[in-house]
Amino acid sequence: MQPLSGEEWDGVLSVAAKQSVSGIICAGVNSLPESFPVPDKVILSLMADAERIRRRSALVSGVMEKALERFAEAKPIVMKGPAVAAYYPEPELRESGDIDLYIPKGASGNAAPDGSSHIKIDGIDIDIHSSYFDLGLSPDIEIPSPEATLLMLSAHILKHAFSSGIGMRQICDIALAYRALDYNPSKLLSLWSDCGLTRWNNLLSSFIRQYLCIQAPLVEAEDPESLLKIVLEGGNFGHFAASRRESLSGPAASRKGDTLKRILRKAPFGLRYAPGKYLWYIFTLVKGNLKAPSPPSSF
């Protein structure tokens, strides 16, 4: 292994922050041989990031317990976030955002006391969803189950890939889920096919195999370049794309305009890898006056 220059290390730190994977990079750097030189400022910076992530993870885990207790009657299921952190070798190093709970429609206590589907506990946002899957999917599958979890994570990534943008954190989530879950591959492939998502999942799995070296199932390999371009362009949920940063500081109309522009720019990608779901998404946005059916996560 060739030592990295100071500039290259700065690049590693910058990409890690943009992709919200500083905790994972810290664990990786810590596992390098002692003989591999790492600048002191890089070690200290990663340690500080990792500690911040650990503290946030502890807070989010505590809030998750409170939320599960609060909605216990409705038997909520934790989606993404702390639930996927469990697939990581060091769960506390996965950067935590908000908490998403799935409570089926009609289950008692499926909303906050004021009827809203969004609450805050100890400053942590909790979104309550009545659909387990994004993009209007409603496959005939038991929830929770390993196959349902994998489809949910994949559809979530796809939704962001053709809207706000997607980063490495969410792709690491599903890659580690593939590694940790005892799923039935033929059942999963049949779910992809039923949902019209085979080509998309081929792309996602090809990306995971090529860049994360984790075995993910696929029917036919795709060139992962187009997904890599989206990941590198905007980072975590596309927050680091230049246009996004400008629009976030502007009025609501500017944000909606930016969202629409991004979605239309992704037309070649969406129509190639998941045409039915891409068109469904555009139709749903137009119907909702450019308001996304479930708002992109804010973290």
Binding site: E34, V38, L46, M47, E51
Partner: peptide, 11 residues
């Protein structure tokens, strides 16, 4: 206090 690769950080 966390430690890594011989460096120590008080948070």
């Amino acid at each position: 206090v966390v430690s890594m690769r011989g460096k120590h950080l008080l948070t």
